[in-house]
Simulated assay, not measured.
Amino acid sequence: MRALTANRLADGEVVFWSAGQWVERFAEAQLFQDGDPEAEAAEAHGKNQPTVVVEPYLIDLMEAEGIWAPVSYRERIRALGPTNLAHGKQEEGGAFVEALLATQGAARSSGRVNLIKRK
């Protein structure tokens, strides 16, 4: 599974693609099967929004604690907000945040690696 992520240009907030719009919560992100042409189309659409988001790319996901979570540690940090527990999305808590925090592994997301290679 994969999800599309970027940073909103107006304020730098991490955002995720969901049914034609950008949302702030990873829990609301649209999930794509590997190789799904709709994922590539969403990524291309995001790249055609240079005044809305910066550097949209697909991230790899794994199932953990009954939810889909980013494979890479970097992407889990982005999904959770700042690492300071008293701020951002982590402060909200809940089962989804707890599951993301409990996810293990530090593999790189192939989407980010491909983005780096293209530069």
Score class of each variant (00 low, 15 high):
residue 49 Q to D: 04
residue 25 R to N: 13
residue 74 R to M: 11
residue 66 G to I: 00
residue 40 E to F: 12
residue 56 P to K: 05
residue 93 G to L: 06
residue 107 A to M: 13
residue 72 S to I: 03
residue 102 A to V: 04
residue 29 A to C: 05
residue 32 F to P: 02
residue 35 G to V: 03
residue 53 V to M: 04
residue 97 V to T: 15
residue 5 T to F: 11
residue 62 M to Y: 01
residue 13 E to G: 10
residue 57 Y to F: 15
residue 91 E to F: 13
residue 19 A to P: 06
residue 6 A to H: 06
residue 88 G to I: 00
residue 77 I to F: 08
residue 76 R to M: 02
residue 91 E to Q: 14
residue 26 F to K: 07
residue 74 R to I: 05
residue 95 A to N: 12
residue 88 G to N: 03
residue 55 E to L: 14
residue 13 E to N: 13
residue 50 P to F: 03
residue 14 V to E: 13
residue 33 Q to R: 14
residue 49 Q to K: 07
residue 34 D to C: 10
residue 42 A to T: 02
residue 71 V to Y: 05
residue 49 Q to R: 06
residue 24 E to L: 14
residue 24 E to P: 06
residue 21 Q to H: 15
residue 48 N to V: 06
residue 79 A to F: 01
residue 105 G to E: 07
residue 73 Y to S: 15
residue 109 S to Q: 06
residue 27 A to P: 06
residue 27 A to C: 09
residue 53 V to I: 09
residue 59 I to V: 14
residue 89 K to G: 08
residue 35 G to T: 02
residue 81 G to D: 01
residue 79 A to K: 00
residue 65 E to Q: 13
residue 47 K to R: 15
residue 79 A to E: 02
residue 45 H to I: 06
residue 6 A to E: 08
residue 94 G to E: 08
residue 100 L to T: 01
residue 39 A to C: 07
residue 88 G to Y: 01
residue 45 H to K: 13
residue 53 V to W: 00
residue 83 T to E: 15
residue 20 G to M: 04
residue 5 T to I: 13
residue 109 S to C: 15
residue 103 T to R: 12
residue 15 V to N: 00
residue 43 E to Y: 02
residue 12 G to T: 12
residue 41 A to L: 10
residue 87 H to W: 12
residue 6 A to R: 06
residue 98 E to D: 15
residue 17 W to T: 06
residue 38 E to M: 08
residue 81 G to P: 02
residue 90 Q to A: 09
residue 50 P to L: 04
residue 109 S to R: 03
residue 68 W to I: 03
residue 19 A to E: 13
residue 72 S to F: 10
residue 57 Y to K: 09
residue 40 E to C: 07
residue 75 E to Q: 11
residue 81 G to E: 01
residue 84 N to A: 11
residue 38 E to F: 07
residue 62 M to F: 03
residue 100 L to Q: 06
residue 36 D to H: 05
residue 95 A to E: 15
residue 48 N to E: 13
residue 88 G to P: 01
residue 26 F to Q: 08
residue 8 R to A: 12
residue 36 D to R: 02
residue 45 H to D: 10
residue 46 G to Q: 00
residue 98 E to C: 10
residue 28 E to C: 07
residue 13 E to Q: 15
residue 22 W to E: 08
